[in-house]
């Protein structure tokens, strides 16, 4: 079975003090720590488990510069067999469609049974790349998968649908599946594991290698133009209700009533 997993290197924004870069269209990245996007971690784990069950080859792909190699190495340490870095200055400033275009150009020349993506990224949070890529590849897509089994030429996928429900569907391979949290518990990647794949060659592809014109990718190939990035205004500070449990509950009920919560 040939499995392709698309991943992204994202900044950890949880504890970081965010600052907008000078051009107003991005974050200052000097003090940020980067790692693989959480949902992409589920996708890699799902890919490696499929390989462990059914045999085959897992290929990890990302769009980014040489810093992005780090997440490809991580995928290799988890059990991916090969990795491709789509690296070209022309890819810069891409919207989800331009990313999907680049990924599609790479994947169309590869054999695949399943393409796995994270359902969403923790930075851009559009959740569009998987769907667009499926459309470009012209394969069925199941989004927000929380369970996955492949048997013969079909995949049985449990996935989230609206209204807090989950549903189980069956889909013919090849297909594209986006991973939601809950799909699996990704394995730990030790420092030693990363070191062991330090010498694995990572193939780099430019836009030209993929047969893409510079105008078809990156900012030029995007359909959404980013005007600027704004920090949300800081809200009021959280309040801790003091006093006895009963008094605190009474105050809470009163507050909720005041603000129409009850």
């Amino acid at each position: 079975m040939d499995i392709i997993v698309c991943i992204k290197r994202v900044p950890d924004l949880a504890e970081a003090g965010l600052e907008i870069a000078a051009d107003g269209r991005g974050l200052r990245t000097e003090d940020l720590d980067f790692d693989i996007n959480e949902w992409d971690d589920y996708a890699v784990e799902a890919a490696v488990r499929l390989k462990e069950q059914h045999g085959g080859v897992v290929t990890a792909i990302t769009v980014g510069d040489e810093d992005a190699e780090e997440v490809l190495r991580r995928a290799l340490a988890m059990g991916a067999d090969q990795a491709i870095l789509l690296d070209d200055a022309a890819f810069a400033g891409a919207d989800p469609f331009a990313i999907a275009t680049a990924l599609h150009a790479c994947i169309r020349s590869l054999p695949f049974d399943v393409v796995l993506c994270g359902a969403v990224t923790s930075d851009g949070a559009s959740g569009q790349v998987g769907g667009m890529l499926a459309a470009l590849l012209d394969v069925p897509q199941v989004a927000l998968a929380t369970g996955l089994e492949v048997d013969g030429g079909r995949a049985r996928v449990r996935h989230e649908v609206e209204g807090g429900l989950e549903r189980e569907v069956e889909v013919a391979l090849p297909c594209l599946i986006t991973a939601q949290s809950g799909l699996n518990q990704p394995r730990y990647v030790s420092i030693r594991g990363i070191r062991k794949v330090a010498d694995v060659a990572i193939a780099a592809r430019s836009a030209g290698d993929l047969g893409l014109a510079a105008t078809a990718v990156g900012e030029a190939g995007s359909r959404v133009r980013l005007e600027g990035l704004l920090l949300p205004p800081a809200g009021k500070r959280a309040e801790i209700l003091e006093g006895s449990l009963d008094a605190a509950v009474a105050t809470l009920v009163e507050r909720l009533r005041e603000r129409g919560g009850l």
């Binding site: 003090d31 988890m78 420092i191 594991g193």
Partner: peptide, 29 residues
Amino acid sequence: VDDGRVPAGMQKALGHLEKKGNPYGKPGK
């Protein structure tokens, strides 16, 4: 650990130790 079999909560702390030098995930600076 070498086999990747680490409880989830611990994985998070170890990940923070690797990236930020502390298990809380606070910025190292």
